[in-house]
Simulated assay, not measured.
Amino acid sequence: MSIEFEDVGGQRIARFGTGPRLIIAVHGITASLMAWGAVGRRLPDGWSLVAMDLRGRGHSAAMPGPYGLPRHAEDVLRVAEHVGAGPDAVLTGHSMGAYVAALAGARRPFARVVLVDGGLPFPPLPEGLDPDAALEATLGPALARLRQTFGSPEAYVDFFKAHPAFAGHWNDDVEAYVRYDLTGPEGGLRSRVVSEAVMEDGRWMRLESARIGAALQAITSPLTLLRAPRGLLDQEVGLLPDDLALPWAARLPGLRDEVVPDCNHYTILFDDHCVSAVVDRLTA
């Protein structure tokens, strides 16, 4: 697989493939551009995928705040312009990246917008529940690792191998994604992700449901939602269950809602059969 890295105004971007047809891809809340490595590796001839490390993540960790999803959407559109992505380009995002993609897709046309296990407004928080507490409950190990240091790259890999979502699903793409995230000296390695960015983005995502809904309704491009039936910890209920997704499918007549079988929130971008479905919907 051909991968070319570039820094654009302090933001790391990567181009997977060499074809003229472009996909602009946005990663999740504690992820990096390497979340799209398996998708980029399976693109058909004639296609390329451009992914970026969002500010506060990966090799864009030093980009300053404020954070928040509208700021990320501005960065996405700036990268799209930089790489020459016209209205025939495809825009996609996974998890939090799907919400960013919705905001960006509301501001300019794309050939289609594909939301991967994200992008739909969450129900209002129960009265008295702090959004930070809700984020902690949802993300679990993903947030815990941001507070830890690791003695070696192998220790960090082992931490991820113990994650319920990756049990029985480990492969070279997951390992490349995990190793890309490490920084720091031997004996004191840590994730590149900036905790402040995660918390600020998480608050925005939980408290600005009306703005997310308005963005979805403003998208004029063909819109696809790909859902994983299993959740962030491989639990039986996914991040976007039917009782959340189906009302939005009814509200947005142009939305194509599809469940990708036998995937969880993470493996939808890493397991062969899940990735094949994602690639097909991006390039069909």
Rank of each mutant, 00 (worst) to 15 (best):
P222Y: 06
A197C: 09
L189G: 13
W204V: 04
T224N: 05
R192S: 06
V194F: 01
R190Q: 13
G188L: 12
M205P: 00
I212A: 02
I219D: 02
R211A: 15
G188Y: 11
T224F: 04
R192M: 10
L189F: 13
G213P: 07
G188V: 08
S209Q: 14
Q217E: 15
V198C: 08
L216T: 01
V194N: 01
M199C: 06
L189H: 14
V194H: 03
L223F: 04
W204M: 06
G202N: 09
L207P: 12
S191F: 02
E196S: 08
L223M: 07
G188S: 14
R203F: 12
R211E: 14
E200S: 08
G213T: 08
I219P: 01
A210L: 12
T220H: 12
M205L: 15
I212W: 01
G188E: 15
P222G: 05
L189I: 14
M199S: 10
G187L: 07
E208F: 14
P222K: 06
R203N: 11
G188F: 12
Q217P: 09
M205A: 13
Q217M: 13
S191R: 01
S209H: 09
P222Q: 05
A197D: 00
E208N: 15
A215F: 05
A215R: 01
G213F: 07
D201F: 02
E208L: 10
R192T: 09
L223W: 02
